[in-house]
């Protein structure tokens, strides 16, 4: 029964991922056409620099704005596309710093709505881990969500990646808007949340740990050497 439900869940996730990936690909085609069309308008304008054109400056500003927003759209589509491709492989070798950056970008809007900013301090070297890419992103997202739900506006959540031997640690550290440290372990150790995170973490073959000073929560993963 449990295995059948799991198979059904996996099929649903795969379906969602496949359709989302296809649509984000199409969005990139749309954005590419807009970008090339704006580029062509810029080319034409620059070819006629000497000709009088009373609205040139406003026109240039509008074109720059379209380029900026197109690039923003491309970044969003690319991130969503990458998330949609996450279930493609149940287990894969991924780079930890890179995956955390992806989650930070995906979580940015949610955190901003709470008035909280997110920061990543990656490890200086690439750290490869072998696990479910989708589950890793989910665990990090859930941990971040637990933190920002209890923080005051103006606060920030820092993720710091360190390495000790064959293990990598992702440290969650929270600071409130007034500069006071908030114990990330507090919201994450609430019974219901803790159980959920424990379940997700055990599926990932990694573990969690708390440190007292400064108060922080750590996600510890085996590094693939």
């Amino acid at each position: 029964m449990g295995a059948a439900i799991l198979q059904k869940d996996l099929r649903e996730v795969a379906f969602l991922g496949r359709v989302t990936a296809a649509f984000t690909h199409e969005m990139k085609n749309v954005l590419a056409i807009i970008k090339e069309s704006v580029g062509l308008m810029e080319d034409l304008l620059s070819m006629s620099q000497e000709s009088p054109f009373p609205y040139r400056e406003r026109f240039d500003r509008c074109l720059t704005s379209i380029q900026t927003q197109t690039n923003r759209g491309v970044e969003l589509s690319s991130r969503l596309n990458r998330l949609a491709h996450s279930p493609d492989e149940a287990v894969a070798r991924v780079e930890l710093n890179d995956t955390l950056e992806q989650v930070i970008v995906l979580s940015g809007r949610f955190a901003r709505l709470r008035g909280v900013s997110l920061e990543l301090h990656p490890h200086e070297e690439a750290l490869n881990v072998v696990l479910s890419p989708l589950r890793l992103q989910m665990v990090v997202f859930v941990c971040l969500e637990c933190c920002w739900e209890t923080m005051s506006p103006g606060g920030r959540i820092c993720l710091m990646v360190t390495r000790a031997g064959r293990e990598a640690a992702v440290r969650f550290f929270c600071q409130n808007g007034d500069g006071t440290e908030q114990d990330a372990a507090g919201p994450l150790s609430e019974a219901k949340t803790k159980q959920l995170i424990q379940e997700m973490v055990s599926d990932l073959d990694c573990r969690i740990a708390w440190s007292a000073s400064p108060p922080a929560f750590h996600l510890i993963l085996p590094v693939d050497i």
């Binding site: 085609n29 590419a32 056409i33 090339e36 069309s37 580029g39 062509l40």
Partner: peptide
């Protein structure tokens, strides 16, 4: 078509 035609022009 629209993409490739614009790119060709540029």
């Amino acid at each position: 078509a629209e993409f490739v035609a614009t790119l060709a022009e540029r």
